[in-house]
Design a protein around this nucleic acid. Structure first.
Lengths: 216, 216
DNA sequence: GTCTATAAGATGATAGAC
DNA sequence: GTCTATCATCTTATAGAC
């Protein structure tokens, strides 16, 4: 279980320094990954030694975990938080996020790098991303359920697949965009894909790809 | 430029050992990433010392690069190779691949981990994945063009976005599936998403998400 | 071709002074 | 709280014996 450990009592100066370190850590881990990013690099960015950083967080792993929930608490653009848009508004929000992300390569890279790395054996951020994806999927599924209630019934499987797919395109397009910004238009491509998936859920489609008996 | 360096002349025993090492390296890099996977681990798997491995490949980076094009040469299921299915058959092929991948977690993980890692600053596999994605996108775009020619015209932008989106869902779903196999059905979800995207390209859709003037 | 030995450097973490 | 010093590993790479 990932828990946010409150720094109950600390001098304001200390809290500020911790935040500064967390910010720097996000940058370094985002740029080089958790494995390759070093405490020394992070320390450099906040004019300290790596020993100083360790004084605040105890270990490198602990620092990563705190970086991750710091992001969740800070990032106002978070989806499954307080002001969750419902229904179709949710999908518009996701599209707007994609357009906004096209101007925030740093953060996009951080999540792309760390989520990819989290899939490795025994990665400290594995649980974080499991929980994150589960929450995001269920938030999107709720939006689908709401919209479906208005437009007519849909199979639950469809909503499940569609929710995962929307997250998947967003992530996948980010990776391609980071590798080749000139070849992928993050905003428009995301908009196209989300529109396509929402349409598939809401209106009965002719099937183009399906075959009677694919070799499964 | 990534080039396959032919091992022009070598004893057959040597060639076999090299292949054995490449296989082990793919496994280790796939499981732990390039940064965390070590030469010693790879060497262990083929009953050698890390010095032996370095004798064959010169450096760790070189080993990774050769692993990657070894995969391309070996993997018969590769898309942009010889027997590229055209038209709708391409999309059926992609769906079948997803179903097949659900039984090859190892390889799926390797590509998920390495492609994510490739986005980090100055990663040795960065160019490889740039080229790979570019080729895959253009292969899919060709299939779309072919199908579109039969079903009616479509804007080129649509094809571009759709091609990137299809790759993106496939990759994104793999990550979610690796993190939570019980929550994501890789095959069916991929099938749904591809069907949705193909439908969006082929048949004019009502727009659900679009707003007059999204805050971009 | 493979090993042993070793270099050479980096890294996470600890201990103790200030 | 931060630094210096130091530890203990770990890791890539090289040199030379067999």
């Amino acid at each position: 279980m990932i828990m946010a450990r409150k720094q109950a009592k600390s001098r304001p100066e200390t809290v500020r320094k911790r935040a500064e370190i967390l910010h720097a850590a996000m940058e370094i881990f985002g740029a080089k990954g958790f494995a390759s990013g070093t405490l020394a690099e992070i320390a450099d960015q906040v004019d300290m030694t790596h020993a100083g950083v360790l004084h605040h967080f105890g270990s490198k792993t602990q620092l990563l975990l705190e970086v991750l929930d710091y992001r969740d608490q800070t990032d106002v653009a978070d989806l499954v938080e307080q002001h969750i848009p419902g229904g179709l508004e949710m999908f518009r929000h996701l599209v707007r996020t994609a357009f906004a992300n096209a101007r925030r390569a740093g953060i996009v890279q951080a999540f792309a790098v760390l989520s990819g790395e989290s899939v490795t054996d025994d990665h400290p951020a594995r649980e974080y991303f499991q929980v994150r994806y589960r929450n995001l999927r269920s938030g999107i599924a709720d939006a689908f359920a709401e919209v479906c209630a208005q437009h007519g019934v849909t199979e639950p499987d469809t909503i499940t697949h569609a929710s995962a797919s929307i997250l998947a395109v967003m992530d996948g397009l980010q990776v391609q965009w980071l590798l080749q910004p000139e070849a992928v238009e993050l905003g428009p491509a995301t908009e196209f894909a989300i529109e396509a998936i929402v349409a598939a859920v809401l209106s009965p489609q002719p099937r183009f790809v399906a075959t009677p008996d694919p070799a499964r």
